[in-house]
Amino acid sequence: MKLNEFIIPEDLKSAQSALEKLGEKGFAVAGGTSLHFLGIVEKTAVDISHLGLSGIQKQGGAYLIGATTSLGDLMKFKDQGWVLDQVALHTSTQQIRNISTLGGNIVRVFPWNDFPVALLALDATLYIEGVAEKAYSSDDYFNGQPIRLFQPGQLLTRVEVPVLKPGQGFGYHKEVRLHAGFSLMTAAAVITVKSGRIDGIRVAASAGIALPARLTLVEAALGGQAADAASLQQAVANGTAALAWKGKEGMSDEYAAHLGRVVLMDVLSAALLQAQGE
């Protein structure tokens, strides 16, 4: 990584104007832990880590998470309807969690990134701020490389995640060889159960498939079905047939497809169990 220059701005506005002026020649650094993978060269770094964009607040039915909140803080935060601690707990190591940020995890997305999958399942809202603030649903935001949505000078400022309510359940799994490894298969699901039926379902996966995406066929197969294991099984079997699974770290695509289905069953079962109040 070759950097030409760095700027440590005083506040959000000066960070944005510096980035705007630099255009292609500048980029934001939050934790800086993914620069190694990005191969950025000959650019000017603008440090956005102390612009007051960190912290978690509960407001109404949602948590507002500052974009530069560290994964370590996400892991430590505890509340009834809060689930992102489970995701952070399985991201890399403490040294990385201490400094890397939620924003950094979801602006330039790799298949193995941990948070996009969870945010898709949770139906998060993402706020990009330039001159004015613009909100994106997770579906729009992750429908392609998010960086496409950013003009020079624009930053992700916060992420809004709904508080999980009674009757809702969350399931998450990241398959790794060892704890600190990159994901081989990630899946997350949120299920809402009403009168014994699946009233709402969002499920997303990544790592084993090209980029984080919702599995709409699985969702469609589950919507309105009886809230039981048989429905899940059938939905996973039918809803994943068209997916192009990719094996990583020496595993075959055939095994990846099998693993993907097992992991999906696991997250759906966990979400269902929680939704049913167990």
Partner: peptide, 15 residues
Amino acid sequence: INANLTDYHIFSMRD
């Protein structure tokens, strides 16, 4: 192709 200590897996205290 996995010549680094994240992709070549040796155990940590957690593992």
